[in-house]
Amino acid sequence: MIKHHPKFSLLQSFVDGELPASLAAGIAIHAEMCPLCQQKITQLTEQVAEASFEDNFTESFVSELIDSVVTTTATELDFDDIIGQITASDDVEPTKPVSVERSVSFKGTEYVLPNALRNMALGKTAQIGKLSRARILLDEGEIHTNLLHIGAGGSIPEHTHKGFELTLLLAGTFADEQGEYVQGDFIMLDKRHQHQPATEQGCLCYTVANDALHFTQGINKLLNPIGAFIY
């Protein structure tokens, strides 16, 4: 059973469209597997939509926007003109074909990607030992997004983070000091945490982090380049 969910404020930012694509996709993937969060998102969206298109809402912004309202009036859009342009088109959105699945392969195992990732560009897979990762090429500056595969019996050396790190389990299970994690678990860590995930059967994770990992223990410090490798 999924035990780890995005916190409410993150769901709100998701609904508002304010998260970077990497995190928004993470929430979408989790929600696809978690009816609980899906329901919250549905309700939030309904409420935000209603509030956005209520007259009160826009009025309450008028004072704040007084300057822009004035300029808007100066170059007021010709609504009838826009309506004319739009309705002149006969274009109708075609029925979407049954969604085309996209899969990736790590160490000989095929994984079907979640819908949210289906059109994202993937880099080449790189490997160190039991770890394989493919960068997801989102171009979000310091935020790095990856598919990370840990082979059976593999683990990530103990580390902390300078920024945040999201690990979303797409397939398989892993465990750390906090316990066992299953498919769909949404694990958001910040620099206060340390962890050392290990997997018996192997697993595939979607990871988002905004800084390289920092390895904390003896010989693992030598492995610091792995931090840059993984995240």
Partner: peptide, 18 residues
């Protein structure tokens, strides 16, 4: 990000039930 990948409909599908 200077990306025209139009990911939004995958992240927030509009016609999921279609």
């Amino acid at each position: 990000a200077n990306k025209e990948d139009n990911l939004s409909d995958d992240i927030w599908p509009l016609a999921e039930s279609l």
